[in-house]
Simulated scan of single mutants.
Amino acid sequence: MDQTQGIPVQIHLETFVTQEGETEQNIFDEPGTVVQLGDALYIRYQETNDETGESMPVTLKIKSSDDVSLSRGSSEGDTQLKLHFVNERRIVTRYRTPYGIIPVETATPRIDMQLRDNPLGGEVYIEYQLFANNDLVGNYRLRLIFNA
């Protein structure tokens, strides 16, 4: 199957955000595409806010079983969040807002991944902590399942 042209997939995403002792869960079911470019797998979709109806482009780039990047927003928009997850490492990245760029840092204690070719699909699970100015913003869990 030629994955360089983009294979349509169905995305199921669950996020859990724990901040100040409160946990919030979000679930998204969206159509998306998977593209293989070089040694990286790109999972792309539009995340739709049920309350506002606005959508935000999201790209998950899988370089290896313990190296994943997440981008929310477009390079042309006011806001773009880029996060980089490497198993058992802390990585500084950035969050572009209308008010300027804020450096943020991810600490990733766990990445689990299962990918398959036929039929195309898989699951990516990431646990991470987000820091801004060396202060813990929150604890996060992300579970993305995709199937062609």
Rank of each mutant, 00 (worst) to 15 (best):
Q25K: 15
E47D: 06
A107C: 10
Q129Y: 10
I145F: 03
H12Q: 14
L144G: 01
S71G: 00
E123G: 12
D50W: 01
Y42A: 07
G38S: 10
P119S: 09
G21M: 05
S75D: 08
D135P: 01
N147R: 07
S74N: 04
R110G: 05
Y45A: 03
P57D: 02
I27W: 05
E127Q: 11
E76N: 09
Y140L: 05
I27A: 11
Q19E: 11
R90T: 11
Y99K: 08
D67G: 05
D135K: 15
E76V: 07
V104G: 02
M1V: 12
S64G: 15
T52N: 00
L83T: 02
F146M: 05
Q129V: 03
V104F: 00
D50Q: 15
F146Q: 07
P98Q: 08
R90A: 14
F28K: 04
L115R: 14
A40V: 10
I27C: 10
V34C: 11
Q19V: 11
V9S: 04
L115I: 15
V68Y: 07
D112N: 14
L136Y: 04
R72S: 02
Y45E: 04
T48K: 05
G122L: 09
T108Q: 14
G21I: 06
I43F: 02
V58D: 04
D2K: 08
F146T: 07
T23W: 04
N134M: 04
I7C: 09
S65I: 09
V17D: 13
T106Y: 06
G53L: 04
L13V: 09
T93Y: 05
T59G: 00
E54M: 07
Q10V: 02
I62N: 11
I126W: 08
F16Q: 15
S75T: 12
Q80N: 13
I126G: 08
Y42L: 14
T106V: 04
T18Q: 10
V17R: 13
D67K: 12
T59V: 07
G73R: 08
Y95K: 06
L144M: 10
D67L: 10
L70A: 05
D2S: 11
T108M: 12
P8E: 14
P57V: 01
I91Q: 06
E51Q: 13
D112C: 10
E22G: 01
R96H: 06
G122W: 10
D112P: 03
A148V: 00
E14K: 14
